[in-house]
Design a protein around this nucleic acid. Structure first.
Lengths: 206, 206
DNA sequence: ACCTGAACACCGTTCAAGT
DNA sequence: ACCTGAACACCGTTCAAGT
């Protein structure tokens, strides 16, 4: 179980352990029930220890949200690499990645935009991760514009619309509107593709 | 200050007073800082009193969310009445009403889909309010289909796309992505109309 | 430099007791 | 029937003290 990390085990990179423990707890419990003390205990450390690594509870939550935005950016980058010459497909693929990430870790997606943290007033790393994720989606939209397949419109407006739709859909699906929790993964994929198709129709030239 | 309500003042409809107090506190403080004890104090009552009217804190939050869905439904109904023969305009108008409600009461919109409550497993009144709001938007979409102005598509998918986009945009704007908090009301209106235009383009026949 | 133990103020919730 | 007071277990946060 020994890794190549500099610090042996018991002490060392507690920061990452706390993030991992918090993420694990969020898989089982709701956002409201998540307590810093419990996270500390799960990481095998005292109540006060987390405060060496996070200013307060919000700072830990910001770190979790940052991880979410990094995942979203990774999904966008992957979509661009996978379909280098098909911007429309990039957009759909990125959207589906977003949706499946939300299904996998609903609590993370919720805290990214649930009002618990403010992107206007947060630590620099979170702000940067959010901007980069948004920027990567903006690239995908830009690819379509350069290819001349989209209608004339402000790129920023298109990007905002795409993110809004995909994020909104993710919340509908994870938030429980219309008994979606009982739907199978295949059904959810079909749902996502339908919505992506309608969104894309609004982007394309007519 | 005497109303026609059956109960005089000091005792009586504490339930509504608690809801009002909670809503008022949410205008100033974040969702995390809202405590039941504080709500009780604001309503001039003891810590334990709310438990005569709400099973627990979640039940109070559900009541707040219910109010939000009722507002959303009201916006949809208003839009249908205002433009009886123009389904596309109904859709844009309802979306703008949603957006402005979110700007006015961001905390309410956040708790409606923020994962704090689950629409799959909540009290009947909240479930009904959510379904009715969703149903009213479905009517607006159906109006467009009946008028034959929308592309061939499952009405449920169109409705889901519309709600997702508008809800997602509301969260982008209230959640602080891309310094929107500094934007004026006029700018936000323009932003909303741009997104609504792109969404609508995806709905319309080509 | 990083962690612990104990403490403080606060919170959700319960329950006997009051009116 | 509705509300209060006091209590219990829990939480975020701080700080002196340990290693």
């Amino acid at each position: 179980m020994q890794t190549r990390s500099k610090t042996t085990y018991h002490h060392g990179n507690l920061r990452n352990s706390l993030i991992a423990a918090a993420e694990a707890l969020l898989m089982q419990k709701g956002l409201t029930e998540l307590s810093l003390r419990e996270v500390a205990k799960a990481a095998g450390v005292s109540n006060a220890a987390p405060y060496r690594h996070f200013r307060d509870k919000t700072a830990l939550i910001e770190a979790l949200a940052e991880g979410g935005f990094l995942q979203l950016k990774a999904g966008c980058d992957r979509a661009q690499k996978k379909y280098p010459a098909e911007p429309a497909r990039q957009l759909v693929e990125a959207g589906m990645a977003y949706l499946f990430y939300a299904i996998e870790k609903p609590a993370i997606v919720h805290l990214m935009f649930g009002g618990l943290i403010s992107l206007d007033d947060c630590g620099a790393p979170l702000k940067q991760a959010a901007d980069e994720a948004y920027g990567s989606l903006g690239q995908i939209v830009g690819n379509g514009q350069k290819a001349g397949i989209y209608q004339e419109a402000d790129g920023a407006d298109l990007t905002l619309t795409a993110w809004s739709t995909v994020h909104g859909l993710s919340l509908m699906v994870t938030g429980g509107l219309l008994h979606t929790r009982t739907k199978s993964r295949a059904q959810l994929k079909k749902l996502g593709e339908s919505v992506a198709g309608i969104l894309l129709a609004g982007f394309l030239k007519r």
